[in-house]
Simulated assay, not measured.
Amino acid sequence: MEKNITPAKHALSYGVTFGIILVLEFVLMYVLNIDPSENAWAGVVMNLLNYLVLPFALTYIAANKFKKEINDGFLSISETLKAGVSITVLAALIYGVFYILFDFIFPEFKEELFEKIQQVTIKQNPAMTAEQLKMSMKFVKIFMNPYIAAPFTVVMYAVIGLIHSLIVGVILKKDKPIFE
């Protein structure tokens, strides 16, 4: 019997889960007024979770489940790539759409964040000239634009998904025998 479930379709629920986690982290940080520049642990924990732990764990779980339950115990690296990149890109799309909507609902958030970033930049680089500060803040403003940040996030998470998928693929790979 032919199975019509692809690794990417199988991984959709994991991508939605990851996207919801990203959104919830953002909302919690906003509601609880946690500033990663003041609380270094918060920034470290979020970065570890969002870029290392969650993408790897969700890719591993999705690929392993696909291997065992759908693909008769076999898994190729390309199937793992499809699952892992699907998970991270879908999560980034969910987060990107949320960020755009959040910007419409709370436009003051962007200005408050910009001011905090500018203060931290001045504090960390007291020898910075006014021209250098102006130039760096120009780039910060560009990347704070939700229409720039959302696509950039999708591309960044696609690369992260690719890297994690390759690692998971090497770990879980089991090719189908040529002759059965």
Results as ranks from 00 to 15, higher is better:
19 G>E: 00
58 L>C: 02
76 S>K: 15
44 V>W: 14
59 T>A: 05
67 K>N: 12
15 G>C: 03
59 T>F: 01
38 E>H: 09
30 Y>E: 14
20 I>Q: 01
23 V>C: 10
36 P>Y: 08
33 N>W: 12
66 F>M: 05
40 A>S: 13
73 G>A: 07
71 N>F: 01
48 L>K: 15
37 S>H: 14
84 G>F: 01
79 E>Y: 05
68 K>Y: 13
83 A>N: 01
68 K>I: 15
66 F>N: 01
27 V>A: 06
43 G>P: 02
42 A>L: 02
67 K>V: 13
65 K>I: 07
62 A>R: 01
26 F>L: 15
69 E>S: 10
49 L>R: 08
84 G>E: 00
38 E>T: 10
33 N>G: 04
48 L>A: 13
76 S>G: 12
77 I>C: 09
76 S>V: 15
34 I>Y: 07
21 I>A: 10
71 N>T: 04
51 Y>P: 11
53 V>F: 08
41 W>M: 14
71 N>E: 08
46 M>N: 13
46 M>F: 12
21 I>F: 14
61 I>A: 02
58 L>Q: 00
38 E>I: 07
31 V>H: 15
36 P>D: 10
29 M>D: 15
64 N>T: 05
35 D>Q: 06
34 I>P: 01
45 V>T: 10
65 K>C: 01
52 L>F: 13
24 L>C: 10
43 G>N: 07
20 I>R: 15
68 K>C: 13
76 S>D: 04
65 K>W: 10
61 I>C: 03
66 F>V: 00
65 K>G: 05
19 G>L: 05
14 Y>I: 01
24 L>P: 00
73 G>H: 04
27 V>Q: 06
